[in-house]
Design a protein around this nucleic acid. Structure first.
Length: 428
RNA sequence: GUGGGUGUAGCUCAGUUGGUUAGAGUACCAGAUUGUGGCUCUGGGGGUCGUGGGUUCGAGUCCCAUCACCCACCCCA
């Protein structure tokens, strides 16, 4: 049995890898426009970091972590997300004592032991940002505007932005009371899962998909109505700013985050039509997180985008870039004895910044031409007896089929010129 | 963790009520006279039919198990 990639993992092969590169580049560029800088953290961390930073009660921690013991018995875990790692790095390097806010972006693989399905893998990739140190609603707005900017930058025009405010622990507690009082009479009509949720995290009942639960909670009190004046104003200012910048969004009462350190703004981006897992991104404010992992009382906000789902959406909306990924120049060797001469030419071209390749399969001239064609080379250089003896190379333009002899001494400038000429012709 | 679907060449798939050396297209390689591509033609390599059992004179075809993939639930990106 040949070894295959582990369940829920996969290879990103060329030419598809180019789509990834393009998307990564676009996202990084936009992050740069907003003043975010890249942070890279370890792929694994102490298990305890995620237990406290993500939350013991979450599915991620209770059943989805790749946890292992190293040779000295430490419990380590492959990161299931990166916010906790960012918070840890912030604390570890005492960056909160420096220039605030700290604005980071990150990109990389995350790991969750889930059952794979469309748009869900065990190793998946996220691009995300985190801002630490500011409670300004303008930061919430900036982050949201940046998400929208990023979607546009990678070519996604159809998406839905849902936002809500989960308030602060105190207004959430008052809402909790109100919600419990409302649900209590109907609690027996709820599904078994929700019976549990009522005990542990009543807010979660709101986004249950079971029909009977949706019926039972019709007319439930709204979180928005229970926000304290500070939280209400915060949310208002976020919404106001988005509106004044023509950002389309919808307020979503059902959008909730369970854990105590989530505060105020919460949001998700959905793209219909990419399967059941339609959330391509999500995030929110977490003013209590840094303190929860024994750091200073520092506010934060962030979001993450799922690369796999963005790519699904791009494929579905038909805007995937299909770049050629080939080489500019192919050097064809007519007789094996001139191979070393060809290598000299190759290195000369490459040193001048021109991508170039040759045959390494001992192919004959005709087969080398086929290979050059498939490599999408714009020019083919022939190196044979006449060329070497007389000090020139024959250059064939693969687009217009014209061939010219170029003296070896003029090679690089002449090739540069021909490539440039081709580019202009193709642009027209 | 639960449910449904699918597993035959690198890829996309045929394979008739179980019956000889398992096929096609595509991709790859090589030819169609001399140092030259995209089209066409010819030929070639490549499969323990996911894996392991079982039924049978005989199984890619039937039964069981297992693994993987796909989709959905839970939940999330």
């Amino acid at each position: 049995m040949p070894i295959k990639a582990p369940r829920g993992t996969y290879d990103i092969l060329p030419p598809n890898s180019r789509n990834w590169q393009a998307m990564e580049q676009s996202l990084k560029e936009v992050a740069g426009l907003y003043g975010y800088q890249e942070i890279r953290t370890p792929i694994f961390e102490h298990t305890e970091l995620f237990e406290r930073g993500v939350g013991e009660g979450t599915d991620i921690v209770s059943k989805e972590m790749y946890t292992f013991f190293d040779k000295s018995g430490r419990s380590l875990t492959l990161r299931p997300e990166m916010t906790a790692s960012c918070a840890r790095a912030l604390i570890e390097h005492s960056l909160h004592t420096g220039l605030l806010p700290v604005k980071w972006f990150y990109y990389g693989p995350m790991f969750r032991y889930d059952r794979p399905q469309s748009g869900r893998y065990r190793q998946f990739h996220q691009f995300g940002v985190e801002v630490f140190g500011s409670t300004s609603p303008m930061v919430d707005a900036e982050v949201l505007m940046m998400v929208v900017h990023m979607l546009q930058a990678i070519g996604l025009s159809e998406y839905r932005l849902h936002i809500n405010s989960v308030g602060c622990p105190s207004c959430r507690e008052s809402y909790r009371q109100a919600l419990l009082a409302f649900i209590d009479p109907f609690s027996k009509e709820l599904c078994p899962d929700c019976q549990q949720r009522v005990q542990q995290n009543p807010l979660r009942v709101l986004d249950c998909k079971e029909e009977r639960c949706r019926q039972a909670i019709k007319g439930h009190p709204r979180l928005l109505d229970h926000l304290c004046s500070n939280c209400a104003e915060h949310y208002q200012r976020v919404c106001h700013t988005l509106l004044s910048h023509n950002i389309c969004f919808e307020h979503d009462d059902q959008l909730v985050r369970g854990l105590d350190y989530y505060t105020n703004t919460a949001f998700e981006i959905h793209i219909p039509g990419i399967g059941a897992q339609s959330a391509v991104g999500g995030g929110g404010r977490y003013n209590g997180l840094v303190k929860a992992i024994e750091g200073p009382d520092l506010p934060g906000i962030g979001f993450a985008l799922g690369m796999e789902r963005l790519l699904l959406a791009l494929e579905q909306q038909g805007t995937v870039n299909r770049g050629n990924g080939g080489v500019e120049v192919f050097v064809a060797v007519m007789e094996a004895q001139y191979e070393e001469e060809a290598v000299i030419i190759l290195q000369q071209l490459r040193a001048a910044g021109i991508s170039a390749d040759k045959d390494y399969m001992d192919r004959k001239a005709k087969a080398q031409m086929k290979y050059a064609d498939k490599s999408r080379a714009a020019l083919v250089l022939f190196v044979g007896a006449d060329e070497v003896k007389q000090g020139f190379v024959t250059v064939r333009n693969m687009i217009d089929k014209e061939q010219v002899a170029i003296p070896r001494v003029d090679l690089v400038p002449a090739i540069t010129k021909l490539l440039h000429h081709n580019e202009e012709a193709q642009a027209q």
